[in-house]
């Protein structure tokens, strides 16, 4: 049984923010928090259950952006018309999270704030240049997701803040994208390495525009590979060029060896995953 705690059940965001300011641990989907509590890694004295907050559970759009509430689940992203139309790369990433049961409960906000380098929704969001909105009783601030991620399990979220929404520019209809993940098996597998790629592509000239590339599970945080993006933009993406660019992927990752794979294997897999993605998107 879980250790005893005090439970706060806010009826609106203001009450939730007050609870967070008082030191309560936020409970979103619970798929990570409850596992950590069961394993004895965490024993919060106070928990604020966010699950009733409808205002954080919506997917909305404005002219340029899709705005995802932090309580939107991975399953919501997979099913939503808005994300399928405008953020297919994120849909692909969310589809590989855990299992159907985990996707139906786990939230985007939770996946981001846990700051696992292997979080599957994060490489797509970073490749798309997503921003996060942080709220507290004192107000709101916005920052790039890439800057928000500070290290394994670490973010720039202050203790009194709650991640309330994620803002992502809509992809253009002509943009191509792919999220490719290597795990021990298809379901319930923590990524060994993953890559998210998106760009506009002209099949005639084989030139790409506005590229985004981000690797997961091969560094302390998910990071955009800006140098690779530049190479993609410069070259005519024929077979030879994508092979060359993919082989450079090892220079832009900084993996560790752990129970899932060695650093050297991860480096090689980055090259392979990027090659597969580029091949599929351009050939």
């Amino acid at each position: 049984m879980l250790k005893a705690f005090e439970l706060i059940r806010p009826s609106n965001l203001a009450e939730a923010l007050a609870a967070v300011a008082s030191g309560a641990t936020p409970l979103a989907g619970g798929t990570d928090l409850l596992v950590r509590m069961k394993k004895g890694m965490l024993a919060p004295k106070k928990i604020v259950d966010l699950s009733g907050l409808k205002e954080l559970s919506e997917i909305k759009e404005d002219e340029e952006n899709i705005i995802l509430g932090s309580l939107v689940t991975h399953g919501d992203v997979v099913d939503s018309e808005l994300t399928n139309n405008y953020l297919p790369l994120l849909v692909q990433g969310c589809r590989t999270v855990g299992s159907p049961q985990i996707r139906n409960t786990g939230t985007l906000g939770g996946n981001i704030v846990n700051a696992s380098p292997a979080a599957d929704s994060v490489p797509p969001l970073v490749a798309l240049g997503a921003k996060v909105v942080l709220s507290s009783v004192n107000g709101e601030r916005e920052m790039k997701l890439q800057e928000f991620l500070a290290g394994p399990g670490k973010t720039l979220k202050r203790p009194d803040e709650l991640l309330t929404s994620i803002v992502v520019k809509k992809m253009k209809p002509e943009e191509r994208c792919l999220y490719r993940k290597l795990g021990q098996r298809k379901s319930l597998a923590i990524s060994i390495a993953s890559v998210a790629v998106k760009f506009g592509f002209d099949p005639e000239t084989k030139k790409c525009s506005n590229p985004g590339v981000a690797f997961g599970a091969v560094g302390p945080v998910v990071r955009r590979a800006v140098e690779l993006e530049r190479l993609l933009e410069q070259k005519k993406l024929d077979q030879q060029a994508i092979k060359e660019i993919a082989s450079k992927a090892r220079e832009f990752c900084d993996p560790i060896s752990d129970i899932r794979a060695s650093a050297e294997y991860r480096r090689e897999m980055c090259c392979s995953l990027l090659y597969e993605a580029l091949y599929e998107l351009t050939c």
């Binding site: 439970l7 059940r9 409970l27 619970g30 798929t31 409850l34 259950d49 699950s51 985990i102 409960t105």
Partner: peptide, 10 residues
Amino acid sequence: VNSCLVLISQ
């Protein structure tokens, strides 16, 4: 959903 990972208040 996995009922082992859902807190009753949820």
